[in-house]
Amino acid sequence: MNDSLEDLIHDGIDQLTAGSTLPAGIADRARQKVRRRRNQVRATVAAGTAVAAVAAGIAVIAATSAGSAGTTPKTAVAPHPAPTVALLAKIERAIASKAGSAPVLQIKTTFPAGRVPVPPDPFSTVQFAQGGIARTTILWTRGNVLKVDWFNDKGHIEMENLATQKGTRGTGTNVDYLSRDWTQVPLNWFVYKKYIPRCTVLPLGPGEPKVWAPRTLAKEIKHALACGQVKVAGRQRVDGVDTIELAFASGHLKVPWYKMGRAVTHQTMWVGADSYLPVRYLSTLTFAAAKPGSPRSISTQSDFQWLPATKSALAKLRLIIPRGFRHDHPKTITVHLPARHK
């Protein structure tokens, strides 16, 4: 008989595991659980889709939050004239004025092609955008309603999400065109009393519909501009619109789920030269330690449209369950907002 501790351990484990066979149906149970979990996450809509819609935007928030907490960006954009007080005031006023008219804000976001690392749960929804399936999301928001449609690179719709919020309660509805099922769950919004805008351009983090409302956007942009980390980079035509290009100081941040070390962020926003409303936002993360097979740089572009609250625009905020789709019944979940909202 063996007389070393290592051998005893080996024999003991051999004895313990002897006769262990794979339980029947374990793979099916795992599949079922993943499917259920996926539907739960998808149904959270704002918690997931807002993240997915602007995955890189989260990083931007992280960067700017870090900046506001005292982290000085190590690199800065090339010297450009700072926007004048008058220009900043015009942008703030334009957004605030637009928000006051209760438009439907549409944000179309395009993700980079190819595989990029995906964050772990509860942000697994990002996988649909970042894992090589969905390439484009279109988000519409007005008041306490948030709707997001997901499209693959061929332009086929893959998923529709709708989230509503009233106080701490709401409903999340998800239609999945891939698995042809739909989910509706009550959402318990974990709403923090104090909302703290950071030195960021957009409220691109996960959050409740309110966070995405134009009014909040106005607040965020105002705050970002007030942070003084923005420079006027010049004039440019974007989709036929004459715009002013605003470059934000680059920063360093760590996005835990990318697991590629720290990234350098570059953010640019174009505002209409006449309207002073945001037209486009581009966020780029560049990783110094990108893994093989992963892109070194991840860029996310968001295009803004401020739609008057017409019938057709309001229809964008409705979700119709297609006929023949199976109704899945996940449990109620609680959506916890990120630390940024604490």
Binding site: I26, A27, A30, R31, K33, V34, R37, R38, R115, V118, D121, S124, Q127, G131, G132
Partner: peptide
């Protein structure tokens, strides 16, 4: 297995 299925990509 669940994690494998989630990270299939």
């Amino acid at each position: 297995l669940e994690r494998l299925l989630r990270s299939r990509h």
